[in-house]
Simulated assay, not measured.
Amino acid sequence: MQDKQFLIDLSNTKMPYGKFKGIDLIDLPEHYIVWYHAKGFPKGKLGLMLGLVYELKLNGLEHLVREIKRRE
């Protein structure tokens, strides 16, 4: 299932650049994700992942990705 693999990939992806380089996407500070949401997420898979992180944090569901990471 493609959605499952996307979540697995998200759980293992680190921010590739900037102030928070090397931090797991799911662990990025909420204010940074909100700023990126307002600015516009980057194109491609990273942008899709950051958009999902925004939605997960907005709805208090980031623990789901942390659980996937723990199991991987």
Rank of each mutant, 00 (worst) to 15 (best):
K57R: 10
E30Q: 11
K21I: 06
L28M: 14
H63Y: 14
D9T: 09
K45Y: 11
K45M: 11
L50Q: 07
E72A: 12
L28I: 09
H31P: 08
E72T: 12
I68P: 04
K69T: 02
K45T: 13
L7Q: 11
M15D: 01
G47S: 13
N12H: 10
L48N: 13
L64A: 09
H37Y: 13
Y17W: 11
H31C: 10
G51L: 00
P42Q: 15
G60K: 10
D9F: 00
K43M: 14
F20E: 07
G18I: 04
N12C: 05
P29G: 14
G51M: 02
L56Y: 11
I23E: 08
P29A: 13
D24Q: 12
R71F: 06
G47F: 14
D24N: 13
I26L: 12
W35K: 15
E72V: 12
A38L: 14
G22L: 04
A38N: 15
M49E: 02
L48C: 08
M49Y: 01
K43D: 11
R70W: 13
Y32V: 15
R71D: 10
T13G: 08
K19P: 04
E55V: 03
L25C: 09
G22W: 02
K4P: 00
K69M: 07
K45L: 12
L48D: 10
G18R: 04
I68F: 02
K4T: 02
I33F: 04
K57I: 00
E55F: 00
I23G: 03
V53A: 05
G40T: 13
D9S: 07
G51I: 01
Y36K: 12
E67L: 08
D24A: 13
Y32P: 05
N12T: 06
I68S: 02
L52C: 05
G47W: 14
F41E: 06
L28R: 12
K4E: 01
K4N: 04
L52G: 00
L46Q: 09
K19S: 07
Y17G: 00
L7H: 11
P29F: 11
L52A: 05
Y32E: 13
K39I: 10
D3A: 11
E30R: 14
E72I: 12
G60W: 09
I26W: 14
G51R: 01
L61K: 14
R71G: 05
E62C: 03
D9A: 09
K39T: 15
L48Y: 06
K21D: 05
N59E: 12
S11N: 09
Y54N: 03
H31K: 12
F41W: 09
I68D: 00
K19D: 06
I23M: 10
M49D: 02
L7R: 12
Y36D: 10
D3Q: 13
M1W: 01
R66F: 06
P16F: 00
L64D: 01
I68Y: 00
R66L: 11
T13I: 07
Y17T: 07
G47I: 13
Y17D: 11
E62R: 07
D3P: 08
L56P: 06
G40V: 15
P42M: 15
H63M: 08
F6V: 02
G22Q: 04
F6K: 06
